[in-house]
Amino acid sequence: MSTRTFQVWRGDADGGDFDEYDVEVNEGEVILDVVHRIQAEQAPDLAVRWNCKAGKCGSCSAEVNGMPRLMCMTRMNLFEESETVTITPLRTFPVVRDLVTDVSFNYEKAREMPAFRPPADVKPGEYRMSQVDVERSQEFRKCIECFLCQNTCHVVRDHEDNKEPFSGPRLFIRAAELDMHPLDDRDDRRDQAQDEQGLGYCNITKCCTEVCPEHIHITDNAIIPMKERIAGDRYDPLVWLGRKIFRKGKRPEDTTAAQTKTE
């Protein structure tokens, strides 16, 4: 057990500042334990959002020493005993109070996303898919919606005006999940991603991947494959020519989707 110093940002949308706390830390504890001890012993009005304390609910997202992290998954042995640890709310979203932010931006963007649409002639209970066809999408289902990726993405973190045209990495993996889904019947996922979600804003600097607590390869497995698919649709003259000659205007995947419906 040792006593460590923490600087916790306290305040709301009207302003705030760092408060300093000296807290006893035990072996094996995480940042969220420390925040709870501060609440219990020194600042009962400290606002913090948390739930599972197991890295699965995505509630306790914050920034620890400037890095977006889940507080419940950030072990204290990451830090030197003499080090002052700063804890701040997510900096991309409006602050509610102390460590709690309003993450409704992400839900608004999610509502704009067209839902999964199965083929019209396939009823629930009749979905049949090969494991090999769905495993790419399954990686993206690990997302716990902690929104650390959304928070760290510089496109909106540093440029508030981009929040309107840009949905962010969390929604890009949703777009990729559906575009790669063997039974999704929509053929406008890529257009949606490029035109409505602002995929072109992403300059693939991979911070979303770096901070993902579920270690989803957001950039390599979702964003870049979507960029490549869009490049094929829009910027590849050979693909365009081949489609004109052999497919009569249809994308190859449209043809495949049509075949699936008839199977």
Partner: peptide, 12 residues
């Protein structure tokens, strides 16, 4: 002049 600190974000 980037947007990381002005209200309604936390004034850090």
């Amino acid at each position: 002049d980037t947007a990381v600190s002005p209200p309604p974000r936390a004034a850090i």
